[in-house]
Design a protein around this nucleic acid. Structure first.
Length: 159
DNA sequence: GCCAACGTTGGC
DNA sequence: GCCAACGTTGGC
């Protein structure tokens, strides 16, 4: 099975790439995802060693800011059972959990953020999920060509 | 803060 | 199973 590539969105005021770098072993559970399509990627498709782009949404500058990798494959997201947690799901039963997470380990911060604005209009990325109209999935597959292109972009125009 | 896009819920 | 109402995402 060849290595696959993904993009994970996060709101940096909630959890940023710097927070991931500061975590023990630079690793964190990617919990709180409450969308079935995204859940299926987390539970079924992500494998240890897969490459991950971390994207900051909502707070400007919206940008891809770092690279990570899958450190642990899909396992139960405990926040679904915690009534005090923002992501609590009263419909989730312990014997049949609905929501899953992976563990993600930081690999490197990009030399500079690659902004959404910059990504738009690049022919090499015109099919990238992040850039499609109306998309809002927080867990997205990324092509190897797109992953490599973005890493090169971050280096080539680094200040 | 606005609102388009889209996912989910629930009445029927 | 349909679909209107509602809630959320996330760029602007």
């Amino acid at each position: 099975m060849p290595r696959r590539y993904w993009l994970l969105k996060t709101e940096p005021d909630v959890f940023s790439f710097d927070d991931l770098l500061a975590a023990p072993q630079q690793t964190s559970g990617w919990d709180g995802v409450r969308n079935f399509q995204a859940r299926n990627f987390l539970r079924d498709d992500m494998k240890v060693g897969d490459g991950v782009l971390i994207y900051h949404s909502r707070i400007p500058p919206m940008a891809i800011v770092g690279v990570a990798e899958i450190a642990k494959e899909g396992h139960v997201d405990p926040t679904q059972f915690d009534p005090r947690d923002h992501h609590f799901d009263p419909k989730s039963k312990r014997e049949s959990p609905q929501w899953f997470q992976v563990d993600v380990r930081a690999v490197q911060k990009l030399a500079r953020p690659v902004t959404l604005e910059e990504l738009r209009g690049l022919p090499a990325l015109k099919e990238m999920a992040l850039l499609q109209r109306g998309q809002r999935l927080s867990v997205q597959p990324v092509r190897k060509s797109e992953f490599d292109f973005i890493l090169k972009l971050a280096k080539s125009r680094a200040q």
